[in-house]
Design a binder for these strands. Structure first.
Lengths: 223, 223, 223, 223
DNA sequence: AATGAATGAGCCTTCATTCAT
DNA sequence: GATGAATGAAGGCTCATTCAT
């Protein structure tokens, strides 16, 4: 059963785009309907409300944004590779640009900064599982760390990644668009991974070629 | 030149609060005027426009928010202590809660996420100097690192700190308010400082008492 | 010809209820259809229009509300008993409460206060015959009265009865629900009958048991 | 201090007219504002709401409609004359036609049939005092009557009068406009007064000329 | 300098109605 | 005969803005 191009689906797509760009208040229902090729009353008919449309858009964003992620990394892998995998996946979503699906990420970001009713589901179904997966990985590095430490570590990992989404507009102006573009997926994956691994007192994982994947900061290996 | 309690000043204060809480769109000019004890037409009289009021509020926020910070840490200090000082200062602002001055930080944060005209000045006068100070500190750790590396490192430091502001609403729901509150200024300063130092291949600075200031992750130290 | 439980019939029933409760403007076509278990488009399909549905509902109300009443009081009866009979019948309809048929009365009342197209038929077929029957009764009391007097007398009788319908909401608040409820069908029939008979210079009719039916005002009877 | 022709006053006048004619639902805020020569937003500015405008209009209607009534009939008068006075006053208001103030009566009538929040004040300040004045008069006729009897009597008096307002549209169609017009203030005052007095077992009061004021129904005077 | 009244554009929403199935 | 989707007109209301004082 394909996702059909019904009015309701087109409405959600248009609404997602609009909400992601302008936010809930500045988003105009008329614009959404025009983009979706529907009548002004269509939103009310299909969703009852501007707010309910927003909620559904957020849920769609989260649903499509996170499906198929469970397939990652089955089998016994080293903690370092697990961490690298996590960071890679996370950055993938964070850095998505010029993606027709992009509004889903932007919309979720908005929701995270200013949670509404919609974010309850979001946190429960999307954020928490991800967070606990990361916590699990980190506990393999620090088996004796207490909860607080794990929280702080997890936030350190996530914070570094998310920053490229959050602060993007200002970062781009700060160091220039070219310099910002140079910080691409591969580079950042390597950088953040090695940064974290060093901080965790471990060594970076080796890529298939058998070389260190990151031009990591020269750390005189702790004994 | 004293800061007088004129209508214009009260208007700016009220506007800052309102804009910081609700954003530009949701902020109501009438609410602002009521809080300031002024007439509805006062905003248009003094600032001409809602938007110009916003811009001025942002500028006030930046002006007051960052004055006097350059005086910190004169004299020759170890890079590790410099970094720790930077992180401490940064977290101070980031974690400010229930502060009457708080709206200034929140408003600037908003500007960073969704830059408007007002943020040009902001970046030039407030963000860039701070960013370059951090870059300078990091270069002392990695004298041979290229520009790109410095950028990435700086963003790693900043990202970790800023995350507690950015993702606060969701983080609070994620790990619970109590666990989040446990991540206070001192703890996070220690954590992030040691995390970064380890990643940079250095050892945490010693505080005056001669003891390590951070309970850094002691991976191998586990019995 | 049975009254079938077709969609059209259910629609009329639901519409009557809704119109009687809320009036034409406030009545919602969607509500009517939901109550009737029919589609939103059913009204337009079966009646073409909201207004035509209203007209038909009024006609149904009048048709069902007044059938079989002419059979009352055949044979030669005293004028006083005729009047009492009329008042009793009238009050019966006026006081009908919690009657599943009640909307028919309420709807007709509405029509009387704010006549629309539908009320032409209503007046011709329902009101006028009733009014002329009353006029006939009154002429037996005052054979020499002119038309105007008969009108005034008839309106005095009708006005007293109708008042309990018309002013019910306010009367209930005025004297309290309990006191209003005490004015039940029997009491009011006796009261209004004796009031009118006295005004008409007659004595109240005696019921089969040979006792005065009404506790008429005994002004001089006071000790 | 004159009642000034401010926008707010004009708005109330226009609203009263509109509400009285079309009812709350069918009344259009735009029409009201156009009639008052004001902007569409004027209602919202001055009254906050369509409903609050309605409430205020009802209160204005009641305020102006009932002022100066307390001056009536000071000094010792016969009960019969008191009753006649009451009926005259009541009919005066009820029959007011083509009066620029007419909307006040029509609006109050609406309120009585379908009470809203506004009618609480109305009942307390306007209806109840009037009702108790009538009750007092009636008690002079029937000193031994219980509460219920007084209620019934009062409603009989009021019902006869009010009927000419309530049922006017249908009555006019029923007996024709000419015949209805013949039932003017003087005629009805005489008719209803004598009708009630007879029912109360009393004799009609004599007017200054010493003649019976009403062509009362020939009643063989009760011994 | 400051105000209260007034404005008009525009938004969300409701609702009766229609159309294709 | 009946339905669900879709329409467009219109209404109440909000809000920033302006004007006369």
């Amino acid at each position: 059963m394909e996702v059909q191009d019904t009015t309701k689906v087109r409405l959600l797509e248009a609404a997602g785009e609009e909400f992601a760009c302008k936010g809930f208040d500045a988003a105009r229902i008329r614009t959404i309907c025009e983009r979706a090729g529907a009548n002004v009353a269509a939103v009310n008919y299909h969703f009852g409300d501007k707010e309910q449309l927003y909620v559904e858009a957020v849920l769609v964003a989260h649903r499509c944004g996170f499906e198929g992620e469970d397939a990652v990394q089955a089998g016994p892998v080293a903690p370092a590779e697990q961490l690298r995998g996590f960071i890679h996946d996370f950055l993938c979503r964070v850095l998505a640009i010029n993606d027709p699906e992009d509004w889903r990420h932007r919309l979720m970001l908005r929701e995270l900064l200013h949670p509404t009713t919609a974010s309850d589901v979001l946190i429960r179904e999307a954020i928490r599982p991800k967070f606990e997966r990361l916590s699990g990985i980190l506990r393999r590095f620090c088996p004796d760390a207490d909860e607080r430490k794990i929280h702080a570590l997890a936030f350190s990992v996530i914070g570094q990644c998310l920053h490229y989404k959050m602060a993007r507009p200002v970062a781009e102006r700060l160091i220039g668009p070219a310099a910002f573009a140079a910080l691409d997926l591969d580079y950042l994956t390597d950088h953040i991974t090695s940064f974290c691994l060093a901080a965790l007192g471990s060594r970076p994982p080796r890529n298939p070629e058998g070389e260190p994947v990151a031009d990591r900061v020269e750390v005189e290996a702790a004994p």
